[in-house]
Design a protein around this nucleic acid. Structure first.
Lengths: 187, 204
DNA sequence: GCTTTAAAAAGTAAACT
DNA sequence: AGTTTACTTTTCAAAGC
């Protein structure tokens, strides 16, 4: 296979922002087509964008969470659509609300099968969580970058908890070198 | 001063009552699962350690007691699956698993992933299979796991498939349904693991 | 703690055809 | 038996219970 870093793919980006204005979600729900609002179940109103595909959770405080986008650019594009929809409803929306990326979910492929049992022992049982009866992935928490990796027997992995795309690259680098020095990446 | 003293007694009594309740629950579940007395004792020790380390805060006594018993079975090398434990517990499987992961981490229990081989004697015995099948099953598990095929797979499903395969090879056939029943897995899982195992063993 | 939203990984499971 | 749908794990924000 190739360089694992080349296989990194962003699967989901979660971000938060705010329009700087309080909202009457009941009336927004009435006027905004496709809006899902059930305050008994959840305090936020759900609005989905098609292109780029994402889901926005809009709160009474005017704060918004956007999730499901495949890149930080898509997050901005999705939120631009949400802002414009709200402006169409004659709601005041700040000029350029600050958008903060809270979490990036990434997938990657180490290109070779992994013996999770050996890796669990090698990395140290106190540093990992591997309960195949409950979930097929091995959970590995890194300090720097501060992310969580899920390793699978196929060699594929998920990196989550990062704030910037670069965190996934750093994490894959660390994981690869750690497994290599343990002699668990060959065979 | 008297109130303070009474409060202390009350707290102490409540703590005692809670501990007694937890230990009686461990006893009740142990009996239902048919685990030896030594396992109950290990479970009690784990529960007391969790209590001493304040791990019960924010969790139910019942959940910690159940997780302690699940951990004790594993520590003693005679595991019960979460499914089996959940059947006799008063908390749901998801909470048992979550609580087990928490106390295992906090108490540094250092338990390795369950080895499918540890389920073999009990399952084979329940199925009335011979020592020969049991030995063949162990061989199948060891040889295929060596090839890295165990990664991510459920230990019970893996053991069940190997038992099914061994029963065929030793002419003591048990149906997938019979094996699935004692291992608490579906026939689909046995079929999938069985196909992989016989392919890896080169039995065609 | 919980509720909701999204997404990937791989295993298991249940409901259908 | 094969397909589809769905749930397990991790992460994160939001407001309220």
């Amino acid at each position: 296979m190739q360089d694992p870093k080349e296989t990194i793919n962003i699967e989901n980006v979660v971000a938060s922002t705010g329009i700087g204005q309080e909202l009457d979600l009941q009336s927004v729900a009435m006027d905004l087509e496709g809006a899902d609002y059930d305050p008994e179940q959840f305090p936020g109103l759900v609005y989905r964008t098609q292109e780029p595909k994402s889901a926005a959770l809009i709160f009474r405080s005017g704060k918004i969470v956007c999730t499901g986008a495949k890149s930080t650019d898509d997050v901005h594009e999705s939120l631009r659509i949400v802002f414009d929809k709200l402006r169409d409803l004659e709601i005041q929306v700040d000029e350029d609300p600050e958008i903060v990326v809270q979490n990036i979910v990434t997938s990657a492929d180490l290109g070779r099968n992994l013996n999770l049992n050996a890796i669990a022992i090698g990395l140290g049982l106190e540093n990992i969580e591997y309960e195949p009866e409950q979930f097929p992935g091995l959970v590995y928490r890194l300090d720097d970058p501060d992310v969580v990796a899920l390793l699978f027997g196929s060699g594929k992995l998920v990196i989550t908890g990062g704030k910037e795309p670069d965190d996934a690259k750093k994490a894959v680098d660390k994981i690869v070198s750690r497994l290599e020095e343990l002699g668990l990446l060959d065979g | 001063r008297l109130r303070k003293w009474q409060e202390r007694i009350r707290t102490k009594d409540a703590g005692e009552r809670n501990l007694q309740f937890a230990l009686s629950e461990i006893d009740r579940m142990s009996s239902a699962l048919g685990v030896p007395r030594s396992v109950r004792e290990v479970a009690s020790v784990i529960y007391r350690r969790a209590l001493d380390d304040d791990l019960i805060r924010g969790r139910s006594i019942e959940g910690v007691a159940t997780a302690a018993l699940y951990a004790a079975c594993r520590q003693e090398g005679i595991p019960r699956s979460l499914d089996e434990v959940a059947e006799v517990a008063r908390v749901e499987q998801k909470e048992i698993g979550r609580t087990y992961r928490y106390i295992a981490q906090e108490l540094s229990l250092g338990l390795e992933p369950v080895d499918p081989v540890q389920y073999v004697p009990r399952f084979c015995s329940e199925l009335g299979l011979s020592e020969e099948v049991e030995q063949k099953t162990r061989e199948i598990i060891e040889v295929t796991a060596e090839k890295g095929m165990l990664s991510g797979k459920s230990p019970t499903g893996y053991a069940a498939a190997a038992i099914y395969a061994a029963s065929l090879l030793c002419n003591e056939k048990k149906t997938q349904r019979e094996v699935a029943e004692v291992a608490q897995v579906t026939e689909v899982t046995i079929r999938n693991r069985y196909q992989e195992q016989i392919e890896a063993l080169g039995i065609h």
